[in-house]
Write a protein that binds this DNA or RNA. Structure first.
Lengths: 146, 146
DNA sequence: AAAATATTGTTAACATGTTTATCATATTGA
DNA sequence: TCAATATGATAAACATGTTAACAATATTTT
């Protein structure tokens, strides 16, 4: 009789294991940020912008892992909230230059410590070695061509 | 030389590394399924339903890693497409029983081999040992309490 | 049994993910 | 130079993610 190829149990399915692990890490961060009315994506963008001191959307989308259409909406929201400023690049007028505002800096200051604490606690709970090994394997997976 | 204290590069940020790795795996699967006009989530639901031979939405949401509001919409779509059937549980009338239809089985047959091939190729490219180690670490991460 | 509570599933509202199309500006090439 | 092409960003359309509220049915409590 023909054996129907069976699927791996969900915990051995790579896509689902990646989903669950991500949810485990992001859950507490989402909860923290909700007090500041920020989504995790908005937070990611805000941090990239703050680090850069002036950056265009294409580079943001690369560093924050967001597609440009998503980023367009997020930048509109952050602008409405007064957390970033947008100006045209004077050299290449297709480009924008995104900068963080004082209000944006305030939001960063209010959440950065707790955000870093969550990551630190995660690394401690897993053990530094295994945590680094996980990062290595994830980067290896990201590097292969399927 | 002076090391400027910096935030972890994006490849050493766990949330972003998880995002990128997931995208690397799901990209080809999404592409495959688009020929059948299925999203990855619809595919995940359809497979869970087929394996079960009759299952309620709460259990599907657990096994497919989808929140119930998302699942509600997905089941409506799959129903419209004629890929599943929905009946009320006669014992507990709050519950539904979801079953796959013949058309649903046909879609599964049309995509299962290629879908499994993508997973297999990924495991081969990474090496079985490292692939399994990655799954172990992801499950460990999912198990810790933050 | 009636009221309170819990469970199952849906709806609503808003944000993001994803693909395709489009607009404006830059760059290239004949 | 000017038409063709490329690039940066946005818009549109549909699907899912996320949280809160709600409706219907079951269960528990008094």
């Amino acid at each position: 009789m023909a054996m129907t190829p069976r699927l791996p149990s969900t915990s051995r399915s790579l896509p689902i294991a990646l989903l669950r692990a991500r949810e485990r890490v992001m859950g507490p961060i989402r909860h923290l940020l909700s007090d500041s009315d920020l989504t995790e994506q908005q937070w990611r963008v805000l941090r990239v912008v703050q680090e850069s001191g002036g950056i265009d959307p294409t580079q943001i989308s690369d560093q924050a892992c967001l597609l440009l259409p998503s980023l367009t909406r997020i930048l509109q929201k952050l602008d409405e909230k007064g957390l970033i400023s947008r100006t045209r690049d004077q050299v290449d007028r297709r480009r924008q230059v995104i900068r963080i505002t004082a209000a944006g800096e305030t939001i960063i200051d209010a959440n950065m410590a707790a955000s870093l604490a969550i990551v630190t606690r995660t690394r401690e709970k897993m053990g530094e070695e295994r945590y680094e090994a996980l990062l290595d394997l994830l980067n290896e997976l990201d590097g292969i061509e399927i």
